[in-house]
Write a protein that binds this DNA or RNA. Structure first.
Lengths: 245, 245
DNA sequence: AATAAACCTATTGTCGGACAATACTATTAT
DNA sequence: ATAATAGTATTGTCCGACAATAGGTTTATT
């Protein structure tokens, strides 16, 4: 019988815990369980799916890690649709783990952020502008040599910018870039002279361009800011082709 | 005793399955377990961590969902550092789940892709150009009314472009945009007249600009291409503020 | 009556053992 | 040598039990 009469595709026999995961995921996507709603307790899930708690719990771990459920009060799980920040955090973490280099990050900043600044010049509302100003003043006030604070403020500037664009797709992408900026800035901030002052000036110029609603200027200063950040790496003698981790 | 003498931060008592997850994750990051290497079997992990299989398995589910391990032969887990495509798939899925709209996606395309095209004009090597050409010819050959194929080809063009940029950060971002493009193109392709022809022409122009190494032209045609895609939505009367799902 | 202390209870976290299902290996038969 | 068979290691699932704990509820205290 080396010539079977008919060929069948192998049946997909996925483990029960995966089915549990998919079933709940599906339910969340379809809207049966809406944001903030509590999941049934484990015992009830066992009852409904007709599997044991061990199996249900493995499925819950999958949901947990995929960010679709989070712990509410008393350890109960509540449904949570992922937001841009969650996406960004997961993405930048994975990219970093994957070993992306300084130059890859920098290059992306260089082609993405100037355009984002251009958009920001027309789109940022007064509230966002005020927030950006506050961040800038915080950096200005932090005159000392507290490098961590400097990095935090510098990154926060980009974060506020990204938030003000009112676009979740961009927010996710820019935020994940921001996290990687922070990661790498931390490594050069101590070695680059006048880093804080240079950042302060650059962000001031960008801010002024935003306030004046001048797209061209915003793009230009942002481009210079990014270029200057890159110079920081060179001055600090950081190997640009090394992983950011 | 309403005046405690000292205040202590609450102790972090995280469940054992989380510790298992973190321990293995740590080991992967630190390089103890390198890419492609097999994880010890569950029984050995129990032995090492001194917990039961249920606990170990919950930890494994976390690792599984985070994409750090995948199944090898005989269901054994092997370590896998996430690559750009994995990141992109997870990110676009989460963003879609989060309810991002057509206009958010389109706006991001509009400010990101023209610049990417500019970079591509100088960076794409002959191999990448050939690949792009092949994708274009596939779309050209698909003269019929097979909309799925048309969408697949159109998206594949963007995919090839992204791959040719030789930058994993950009690749991840562009790929996740591409997936969302595909998702939304599918919804308009049938309703927009001459969609295939318009895409074909636009991509031809972009391709020619790449071949000529003309950055300006590449950016210009890409911008037109994206604008044209947006017009497709208008013509197809798609509500731009609706979720892409 | 308001507050604190003690108790109760529902739920999760972990354990240990058991067995079926299955994919890889070694052995035997042709 | 090839094919069929049996054996083995490992995962998937089940069951039942109990400890730990976050909340809620009652009781005691001033």
């Amino acid at each position: 019988m080396s010539e079977p009469k008919a060929k069948f595709a192998p049946l997909y026999r996925e483990p029960a815990y995966l089915k549990v995961y998919r079933a709940i995921e599906e339910n969340i996507i379809e809207g049966g369980l809406s944001d903030g709603e509590a999941l049934p307790i484990e015992a009830q899930l066992c009852e409904q799916f007709q599997v044991t708690r061990s199996t249900v719990r493995e499925g819950l771990r999958l949901l947990e890690q995929s960010g679709l459920i989070v712990r509410g009060s008393h350890k109960k799980f509540i449904v949570k649709r992922p937001n841009a920040s969650d996406v960004a955090a997961a993405a930048s973490r994975s990219l970093a783990l994957g070993g992306v280099t300084f130059s890859e990050v920098w290059e992306t900043l260089a082609i993405y952020y100037p355009q984002a600044a251009r958009l920001a010049a027309t789109r940022l509302n007064d509230e966002s502008l005020a927030a950006l100003n506050a961040v800038w003043r915080a950096l200005d006030a932090n005159a000392g040599e507290d490098h961590d604070k400097t990095v935090a403020c510098a990154v926060e500037f980009f974060q506020s910018l990204a938030k003000g664009l009112d676009n979740r797709v961009m927010l996710a992408m820019l935020q994940s870039l921001n996290m990687m900026i922070g990661e790498s800035l931390r490594q050069v901030i101590g070695k680059a002279p006048n880093a804080r002052t240079r950042i302060l000036n650059a962000q001031k110029n960008i801010l002024d361009a935003f306030s004046a609603r001048d797209e061209g200027l915003a793009e230009e200063w942002m481009a210079k800011h990014i270029a200057d950040l890159k110079r920081g790496y060179v001055v600090a003698k950081v190997e640009m082709d090394k992983s950011i981790l």
